[in-house]
Design a binder for these strands. Structure first.
Length: 390
RNA sequence: GGAGGGAUACCCAAGCGGCCAAAGGGACCAGACUGUAAAUCUGGCGCAUUUAUGCUUCGAAGGUUCGAAUCCUUCUCCCUCCA
């Protein structure tokens, strides 16, 4: 299937959305114009460290950008950094990163390819592994590559600089990381390399090295980093402030609805093609729309509409669950609505526990066998339960 | 190699023989207020029990003592300065 590549200005308008850095802009414009004129796709490269076990919305910002290129008719390469993972990019860290085992890399890479096609067009995506060329380099070739860069420039990179100045160790092989990533570009000869904005240094190293190897240097495009649910840090699974793209529709919807308002506005340009004006748009409405849009992206329009209706109806409990406990506090512990009996009693005392939307304050509250009811603790969604004591 | 400092609950951090289940802050949970947001206020935040009591905690193991997070011994791990 062939997609007609639109004029450069039209393309640029789309590509600049959610983009932090794009340079050299004139060069990219020129190549986009050429691609339109000859209807010849540009080669787009994006590298992924196979470190994250699951994709979350933060990753999708970049993947969406790739998808935009695809929709404009370009050729996208999804590069799995299986060889670079042997080093582990220390970007943004103030310490070395422990290398991954080969098995772990395989598992993570599989997770990526399983999930990434929720967004990318599988038929129009080229998957590459950088072990294919990096694994073949001789020591001599590595030296030749290393000779094309210098330490002073390498130390311009923020995390290296910080570590150098604070006398924290920097292993020599870490300095090789940006060069390896740059060499990926020599191997693939992309027109554009995409990355998160924290990758800007590595992407520029790619430009430099390509030039050194007599190639036309790639253009560089970085996207903004998505702030996580806490409204503070970059979204990451280890911080627990993420929305996984395989999470159930309801969970996703609720997480997004619980976003701090300020954070929500920053999500629009990065994740959608709209940017409502905070001054004139009611925040709650905007947030619901955002949640619905994102749920629809991963679960379909129908599911998204359904979740929204469910949420607006007060999130009625859906499934029946069974328990052998008769004591309210014990049931809460069983359902992990409380971490311990003490905590359960505490919540009951504080009025956070509702049975059939009636507040229960008796910490010894016990259900008769056979009772069926709806239990809600705090802001969590209610659960429908049936007591089946012997 | 030499000198010194530290390890306290999820994180930071006080305590330095009894009044310590352990101050304070953050995070987190519940309530009020709200929009299932933010801000603010209130309560909670080791475990168990119908709440007052018991049990287990202060890097690890021993010891001194009526009594230890606090004193002593050994061990483990961190950090700073000098060479």
């Amino acid at each position: 299937m062939n997609i007609r590549i639109p004029p450069a200005d039209e393309q640029l308008a789309i590509l600049e959305r959610g983009t932090v850095d794009l340079h050299p802009k004139e060069e990219l414009k020129k190549r986009l114009a050429e691609s339109h004129e000859h209807q010849k796709p540009l080669r787009i490269k994006t590298g992924f460290d196979p470190t994250a076990p699951d994709l979350h919305l933060g990753h999708t910002v970049l993947i969406e950008k790739m998808a935009q290129f695809q929709r404009l008719g370009h050729e996208v390469t999804f590069l799995i950094g299986d060889y670079t993972a042997l080093i582990g990019d220390p970007t943004g860290r103030n310490a070395m990163r422990p290398p991954l085992s080969e098995e772990q890399i395989q598992v993570n890479a599989k997770t990526y390819t399983d999930q990434v096609f929720k967004i990318l067009d599988r038929d129009r995506t080229i998957i590459e592994w950088n072990s294919k060329w990096l694994g073949k380099l001789s020591f001599q070739e590595v030296i030749k590559l290393a000779a094309r860069y210098n330490v002073a420039r390498m130390l311009e990179r923020r995390d290296f600089k910080d570590r150098f100045e604070s006398n924290t160790q920097i292993a020599i092989h870490e300095l090789l990381y940006p060069l390896m990533q740059a060499y990926d570009s020599v191997a693939l000869v992309p027109d554009v390399e995409l990355g998160g904005h924290d990758q800007i240094f590595n992407l520029n190293a790619g430009r430099h090295i390509m030039e050194q190897y007599g190639q036309r240097p790639q253009c560089v495009l970085t996207v903004g980093l998505l702030v996580g649910l806490d409204g503070r840090d970059k979204m990451s699974k280890s911080k627990g402030n993420h929305v996984g793209i395989t999470e159930p529709a309801e969970v996703m919807y609720e997480k997004i609805l619980n976003l701090p308002d300020e954070t929500m506005w920053t999500w629009f340009p990065l994740l959608t093609d709209r940017s409502p004006d905070p001054a004139s748009t009611p925040a709650l409405e905007a947030k619901k729309a955002l949640a619905q849009t994102l749920v629809a992206r991963f679960h379909g329009e129908a599911a998204a509409a359904e979740v929204r209706a469910w949420s607006e109806a007060g999130r009625p409990a859906k499934n029946d669950e069974r328990t052998k406990n008769t004591k309210l506090a014990a049931i809460m512990v069983e359902l992990q609505l409380a971490g311990s009996m003490n905590e359960a009693r505490q919540k009951i005392k504080q009025g956070g526990v509702h049975v059939d939307e009636q507040r229960v304050t008796d910490i010894a509250f016990t259900f008769p066998s056979g009772a069926a009811f709806e239990l809600r603790v705090g802001k969590a969604k209610p659960r429908r339960l049936k007591v089946e004591a012997e």
